[in-house]
Design a protein around this nucleic acid. Structure first.
Lengths: 128, 128, 128, 128
DNA sequence: GTGGTCTAGACCACA
DNA sequence: GTGGTCTAGACCACA
């Protein structure tokens, strides 16, 4: 079962943190197609957040095709399907990359430091 | 002169998009230390946004040490200086990293694809 | 609850006066870590200023690490942390000092009077 | 003759920096009653600023009674006279003090550090 | 209910 | 001409 961890003080909205973690868990293989997610109310209780917040996170993931909700049974990891056209995906990747690199540069990170930081964070996520 | 471009419908606030683009222009070398930025009102008119929105973006960049405002003269690219403590810098790096990875995950990128994308974009920038 | 008071005609901007008073309330112990601040719109109404003005003050305090904003819940006094580098801290200290001394000089205070005033106010605060 | 020094990049308006320095020079004894100031145009040229800026600084000091302008002869340090009532002066001193202490506290300065900083800056000014 | 963003438009300070 | 502040008011995101 995924371990969710929430930082309420941070800038990132709580529901977004949940979304992020579900996606990261899928990328890392911690969650596979067909796996069940914790119940909205159970997870809300565990994280000590409003259950609307968890519901919103799951709704977003259902909407974008990452999860699927089976009536009365719960929420599950859905089969992969492409949401964006190849060119749209490329455009979004490129934009995310530029914003990220500009921010890291503003924080005075060298190219090496940036690659190192990405690699180590990815290892942390997938190696878990 | 930098070419600014805004996507008003996006989920990234307009003023943030301006911040991103100023930083990106500095990374790419399009803007160098001492260079003037377009006037707040001029840029606002060009982007068809309110001048306050541009002012907010510039103010944020002044605060984080990227730009400096000279009274009655305009806004300029500041000399690089370290504004943040090591711990704050780490905090911001980690935040930028998490947002970036979440975005890439949402676009179905594997860890390898992410690292490859970062590396290739960095090569492109430093090789320029 | 803190009592805010604004002088709209003064040469110090309203939002700065709010910033000053939040900081002063923290120095005096009137506000402690974790305490909630009055709501942006509530405080704006009480001070008879626009809510944007209060929001701007709070945003500045969030940026410098004094406050933290929790999405949908309100604004709170943050845990103390070092946001600025040693050099930036020195810069800001020196700036604050110069403004203060200029103001005291304008009020015809001698060096002795200034030091005496600082010492006595500090005693008052720490002895409290 | 006073040595003026201007920091154009700083937040403090240039004309204010001139005002500050004249006042500091008077407090430190570097300038005494009846002493002449440099000519507006000469000083402007030396500082590489617009002469309106210097004129504005001198005008403010004349207005508040610090300097006096003698037609066709130049600007001189005026005899001391009280501009504010005692209670008004006290109120302004107290407010400047509170703003200063709150800022220094926000920068994580202890009472000792604050007193030390004030003392050393005053020594620097008067000991010159 | 809470803060965040944005607009249109005014007025001010500075050079 | 340049940026900075402020208002009135709208609309959105989050919990």
């Amino acid at each position: 079962m995924i371990e969710f961890k929430i930082t309420p003080g941070g800038n990132r909205p709580i529901y977004q943190q949940v979304v992020d973690q579900v996606r990261a868990a899928i990328v890392s293989g911690e969650l596979s197609i067909g796996d069940p997610l914790p119940s909205v109310r159970g997870l809300a209780q565990q994280l000590v957040v409003n259950h609307n917040t968890v519901a919103k996170a799951f709704a977003e993931l259902v909407r974008d095709g990452t999860l699927e909700s089976r009536q009365g049974r719960g929420v599950f990891v859905a089969k992969r399907r492409n949401v964006f056209s190849a060119s749209e995906r490329k455009r979004r990747m490129s934009q995310a990359l530029d914003v990220f690199l500009a921010e890291m540069h503003a924080l005075d990170c060298s190219a090496d430091q940036i690659q190192e930081a990405v690699a180590s964070r990815l290892d942390q996520l997938t190696g878990k």
